[in-house]
Design a protein around this nucleic acid. Sequence first.
RNA 1: GGGCGUGUAGCUCAGCGGGAGAGCACUCGCUUCACACGCGAGGGGUCACUGGUUCGAUCCCAGUCAUGCCCACCA
Length: 961
Amino acid sequence: MTMDKTFAPADIEARINEMWNSASAFAAGAGSKPGMDSFSIVIPPPNVTGSLHMGHALNNTLQDILVRWKRMQGYDVLWQPGTDHAGIATQMVVERQLAEEGNEGRREMGRQKFIDRVWQWKEESGGTILNQLKRLGASCDWSRERFTMDEGLSKAVLKVFVELYNEGLIYKGKRLVNWDPKFETAISDLEVENIEVDGHMWHFKYPLAGGATYEYVEKDEDGNVTLREERDYISIATTRPETMLGDGAVAVHPSDERYAPIVGKLCEIPVGPKEHRRLIPIITDDYPDPEFGSGAVKITGAHDFNDYQVAKRGNIPLFRLMDERGGMRADGETYAVEAAKAKTLREEGGVPDEEHVDTINLVPDEYRGLDRFDARKQVVTDIDAEGLMILVEDKKVMQPFGDRSKVVIEPMLTDQWFLDAKVLAEPALASVKEGKTNFVPKNWEKTYFDWMENIEPWCISRQLWWGHQIPAWYGPDDHIFVAEDEETALNDAIQHYMASEGPWKAWLEDRIDNFHPEELITRDPDVLDTWFSSALWPFSTLGWPDKTPELARYYQTDVLVTGFDIIFFWVARMMMMGNHFMKDEDGKIVEPFHTIYIHALVRDEHGQKMSKTKGNVLDPLVLIDEFGADAVRFTLAAMAAQGRDIKLATSRIAGYRNFATKLWNAVRFAQLNGAALTLGFEVDEVKEPVNRWILTEASRAIQEVEEALAEYRFNDAASSAYKFTWNLFCDWYLELLKPTLNGDDSPAMHEARATMAYVIDTILALLHPFMPFITEELWEATGGFDGRPQPLALSPWPELDYADADAAADINWAIDLITQTRSVRAEMNIPPGARLSASLVGVTDTVRDRLESQAAVLERVGRFEALVEAVGAPEGTVQIVVGGTTLCLNVGEVIDLGAERVRLAKEIDRLDGEIARIDKKLSNDKFTARAPEEVVQGERDKRAGYEAEKLKVGEALERMG
RNA sequence: GGGCGUGUAGCUCAGCGGGAGAGCACUCGCUUCACACGCGAGGGGUCACUGGUUCGAUCCCAGUCAUGCCCACCA
């Protein structure tokens, strides 16, 4: 076939993909050799709403390189693809779509109809990102695509939830959680981003109850009194005045003498109508720092995590002030009655207990329904108007934001489900400590350890609709029944109540077999955190809890390839779940993977994080359109050095696009010159030094690529393959072959054609994991004597153990000679087209052989008119020392004798410098005594070489007179 | 406050105990019959700084400076 001059990726990528698809080239086990081990990777499932970004491109390129490599090596390979249902993100996308279409909203639709709608969206648009992965060339087994809300995966989720619940590792409780007022759901600690923003700190006076006063005394470090005054208030500082209405106490440090006189007394929250203000106690706790602010802290247990701890320790009531949207709650019908009770209680010298305060209208009318930030302004204004504001400072404050919603997270007291992560973390921690699962690079272990060792309960419930609904049902008395399905839960409930003595026993006896389940039990409306199902991904995708052949074959998976940003979200949780549920016949833990390869983040060329707002986003699909998938992949691999972020510049991609073109043209050249594997070609029978040399180098390249990939040094693997292809094969081998290929028909020509074809096959195979499209295309284009029985993707990885040191020495000598000649020619401005005659002085037998066998090559590539042996250097020649022999170039009239003398003198200077440096070393007794013998000998050898060269150059200089 | 990382050619990055490398950019020369997305030849670096270990340090150790990221409850 004829090939175009340049390689046009767009023309072939779709076709090659189609070919792989119809050949089922990526099906689990495709191309594997009998009896080979499995090699499996589960893809980090992208969000079903996602579209391919550079991070995905890097992540999946690296996986694909490993998978294609192992597949070619004959392993039984599975790369398991799929997507994640991404609870919040997906619900958000569909809600936005509903709004844009002018449709009724989620709440109006109702749960079931909304969920149906999301499924519909998923069927229509959910495949986008996987199709984009195909464009990248990802060789997943697409026939095994999974989705975290598939029937099978949902079954796994139910089973895990029920088992963990029965083991007491999942529980429900009223806790302070991170509440996202935009999505109106709880989120986990990990979904909160703490960001420093400009804020204020307000200092307020909390008047003491009943107008009481005390003597406030401040002292300096030496105990001298610096301030003494009578106060009828305690000064507190806050960044969140709107939470004052929920204060349960004011806390001071027990050692703080300033407030000792008033500890135990009551003070007033100076907000709202005076007659209804709550009084709160002044307590001691270790939490307040006497050095910070006034040393007194208001305690708002229901809206601050620190305060929550203090409140629990001090038995301080918790007052939830806000509704789901972060507005000041507008309920409180019992306000008048209950507040009056509380007031009475206070007048009698008591503190309202929880029973009373819970129903007190905490939020006075003027704040009701206000957004929390408006409420903040209002509270500040009102306190200021009353003259109780001491000062307001500008201050940087750390504020929690929802990672998806970007709104300020509100700590809220709600009922939620939790997973006791501490228990599950133990074995997950041990597996890494014992080296059964290894991080690459290893330093990520520390991050993992730190987090796992300090792990907090995981809030797994979400107040969303899209997701795995929690399999818990509540009886009429709120008794919880957890089961994999409603029928089981119902039976459990019936049993439970029949065995009880309560009213529900009678109710049941009345209408057993004749009531609707919902009259007895109702299902918890919450769904699980998306990451709960992702945590099961390595085994749920393989069919667990069923005992499938795939599970037996491909679990444990081999390597997890992912970014460090989801070590906590995903990696740690897969380890916890995998280690808890996956055991072998002996009951020993089988980790989800033996290696965790953590790759870098892709940034822009200046190291900035790519973001839409900065406008520095590189879209991999655009880059693929422009440069081809192979170039994008190769760039990412070449830059994937461990332990550093990737700063991606398009110039690099262009460079590797050029590499693809180079490869294309090399193969085209070979084609034009009749490259073809001949029947029965055996590398061991190759005779020509040039061929033996390239086979030696090919063997080395294969080994380098293998070693690098085995250690996940993708950049080293890429660069070895690159250098071999371009700098050795193209730059030298093909050039050295040209005289033979253009010459008369000869055995050498046939050997060249065959070797060329053989090495091209090797190159295509070596590069295939990195550049699958062009190599596959060229593989087709270069079918040998028997055609191509298999796509390259399923062809064997090259095996070549070949080394010929003599041939290498011969060819390297020729390369050296040509290089030095070129250098002199360029230096002396000799027209590139001019052919020079030259002679060699001091020719040994070895060199004579080389001259003889490579005469044609030397003359053509070195552009010599004639290259002959001579006894002495002819007049008017430029002399170069090439390994013990002096090459005398007859440059004719071009020669500038003065310049040539200077050139040679400079050369001698350089050699003198080298010799002096070595002499300095060798004359150091400590060096010769302590350095290893081979190092010392190496220096001596080098010195001898320089000496010999210097001698020749000196002779050349002398001859010039 | 804790943890991890990075400072090597103009730019983006490899290397990491024994003479400083790549790609891009730059300079010079090439319509050499595969490739100008090319070929050939070049210029350019006290390998952040200061100490230490060593026969020998860009590489190992300590400190300093600069810079990035992650975690963390200072109201």
